[in-house]
Design a protein around this nucleic acid. Structure first.
Lengths: 199, 199
DNA sequence: ACTACCTTGGACGTGTCGTCCAGTCGCGAC
DNA sequence: GTCGCGACTGGACGACACGTCCAAGGTAGT
């Protein structure tokens, strides 16, 4: 993520930094466009002129919030990936951590993807997503291949598959609830050639 | 999809119906918000006033286009699902058809998800996606369970996983290209308990 | 006290939206 | 042929949000 864009124009004072978080809810409720700067000003208690003093525009406020979330996610998943175990076990942990994170940051996470299309044009959030999510997955797959716990032909393709599986599962959780992440690791096998070991 | 929203206010004459398709490219290039009504008017050759005569606003034009695409996809996937074979084979066919469709309708498909967040608030595109994509998958899984070609514990969860896997794989294809849909059906097994049969 | 930066209210110009309406056109009815 | 009606369209309009600008008031360091 290029700092020039994901961060405010000027160093954000502490009291602003904490209050700007309140904007997340507004964005989450309304989406990027339906959110007016005045709404953000009202929600955060930071006057409009001050917001413009620190940010070039509302997309940048959103980008700032998203990059914060992304940074948290990167840390969480990196930690999950760092723990010992086979590649397969680490992959499972990653999936679970990821789902937990989605559950914990529901609105922001949804926003991350709902608005990714446009926000990404200002910020390379896509790169951040790759760094935070896909690359740990890829690494776990690679390790699993090496230590024999997984059998992966094409790392990138497999990583995309895993990512998609977790992402959509997480999104579904956000909407309906329920807990069923076992499917991801358990797979859809033939009844005979089952290979247990879930989550 | 509730017809009241996904369709224009009035029956759209033939010549309009064909020309409105040209709006897809504009939307695809700029996204929903960056697209101005005047751009659409210019691109389609339909005057602004006439666009408003038929549609309440630009979101509805987009929704109209998306629902067309969705309808095509429903047909394609339904056809794929209708062909004979085990549940497992049908599932593979669905995945492949889906990827083919993504490849064929790249820009529109990307739009479908980029703008789904907002468009969905006006139109129940989410329901359309479910009808077109998830529900055939679910059915194939169910059939596979019944005929013994698959082993699925939770249909809905598994369907979400399959959907996510295909979706993200397709999106990746849109961005980088390449052909690697085998992963989806082949799975990420242990080297020993392989169960062949790909795509 | 002076200087430099932070902070804010409020006015402003700009662009797009969606509405409105009056006028034109094509066509079937009489 | 001309009347009536709905389709269609150009152009003007008011509303609203954006982002800019500035001047006044604070605050802090020297």
């Amino acid at each position: 993520m290029s700092e020039a864009f994901t961060n405010p124009i000027r160093p954000l004072p502490q009291d602003m930094a904490s209050r700007i978080d309140l904007a997340a809810q507004v964005f989450a409720d309304n989406g990027l466009d339906a959110t007016r700067i005045d709404d953000l000003a009202k929600a955060t208690g930071i006057p409009r002129a001050t917001l413009y003093y620190y940010f070039p525009g509302k997309e940048h406020i959103l980008a700032h919030l998203l990059s914060l979330t992304l940074r948290q996610m990167t840390a969480k998943l990196a930690a999950a990936a760092a723990e010992p175990g086979t590649g397969r076990e680490r992959l499972a942990r990653l999936a679970r951590e990821h789902l937990v994170f989605i559950g914990a940051h529901g609105p922001t996470y949804r926003l991350l993807f709902a608005e990714l299309g446009r926000a990404a044009s200002l910020v390379d959030i896509a790169a951040g997503v790759d760094l935070a999510i896909v690359s740990p997955i890829r690494q776990a797959l690679r390790d699993g291949q090496d230590d024999g716990s997984l059998d992966v032909a094409d790392m990138s393709a497999a990583a995309a598959v895993v990512y998609g599986a977790v992402l959509v599962t997480g999104m579904q959780h956000l909407l309906v609830g329920g807990d069923r992440d076992q499917v991801i690791m358990r797979g859809i096998g033939t009844p005979i050639a089952r290979r247990g070991r879930r989550s």
